[in-house]
Design a protein around this nucleic acid. Sequence first.
DNA 1: CCTTTCATGTAATGGGTTACATGATTCG
DNA 2: CGAATCATGTAACCCATTACATGAAAGG
Lengths: 201, 201
Amino acid sequence: MKTTDATTSNLGHAILGLLARTPLTGYDLAQRMRRPIGYFWSARHSQIYPELARLEAAGLIRHEVIDGAGPRPTKRYSLAPAGLAALRDWVVAEPSPQPVRDLEVLRLWSMWTVAPESAIELVESCRRDHRTRLAEYETELAEFAQLPEARDPGAPLFASRVTLEYGIRTQRAAVDWCEWMLGELVDASPPDPSTPHHGRA
Amino acid sequence: MKTTDATTSNLGHAILGLLARTPLTGYDLAQRMRRPIGYFWSARHSQIYPELARLEAAGLIRHEVIDGAGPRPTKRYSLAPAGLAALRDWVVAEPSPQPVRDLEVLRLWSMWTVAPESAIELVESCRRDHRTRLAEYETELAEFAQLPEARDPGAPLFASRVTLEYGIRTQRAAVDWCEWMLGELVDASPPDPSTPHHGRA
DNA sequence: CCTTTCATGTAATGGGTTACATGATTCG
DNA sequence: CGAATCATGTAACCCATTACATGAAAGG
């Protein structure tokens, strides 16, 4: 006998994951969907509010009305026991292969259609972006990496730490890749033809 | 004066990028949306056929009827001059920040709610997946990496090579990350309590 | 006083998946 | 003779973004 027959969406599980850490309002959830979990999952408030209603109807979350500045009653949501069970089930469930969509790689996949100088500019701008995000993640990780809870696999901070580490590693790999590409580009098309160059013409 | 005022979608540019390399039927395009470009962009045939009609209405592509096995006339699409221009414009255009959605990281972000043994299994299955994909990309790259066109920034194979290299680097980073995580997990919770172990309890 | 932040909702539109539908050829 | 491959399309539905709508408190 299953605890939940209602099929909960990915967004629903993202919300459950947030509420498993601490009770939040819909507004707070929307903020968190930028940072800290915004770097691997995102959603707008217009998507969050209806999903909260669905989760509550399924008995996975509950709310209490608190003081707030909005024109309507401010609701703070928290995880119901069935919600924690549903989250646990989902974490260990067989992952269905998700469709990949990387706009940056798609763009660079057609870089051969433009002049090499434009391609170099393009790659340099990618490198800049990845460097910026890398620096952000590194400062964010530094804020809590040394706390003892960040070492405990049963603590939320542990998961925050390892996922941030993932972000750092992939951004670093992306920066390295950009630099490797720049090497490949200038190797094939030397930037200054007045300077004598070695290698193939 | 712009060449195209019609706003073309990401999918549209993916199709233009494919047709810039060689003429294809809608069916062929759907196949390519799995491999080779399927690892960074994907689409089903039900999405591709209407988009082809839109691109053709915008004058970016053309088709000719060829012999085929389908019940309806088989159409081979190729890029029109305006299509190549639109593709070039898009490649060098300012990229709008795309929303990120990584289901694997979202899942692991809630790994703290399950037993450490379950978490270890989870990470091991992630490592297996990344290793498989890494091996696929490596064999695919080996097929054309040594061809001379793969060194020419103006050739499609150059872009194929560098984007595959990106796939390889990110998958390798992911495998390393999984192994690092396993180290963190067994460090905190020793797998076999009967064996005497060093470090903190 | 004006802008930002707090705070919650709905409506319209676009992008994407699943399912429906058809029919010839090739291979086991 | 049945399954897979070739080959193209439509319809229904879900997910996500943008835009519409409202209003109080706080800060410059």
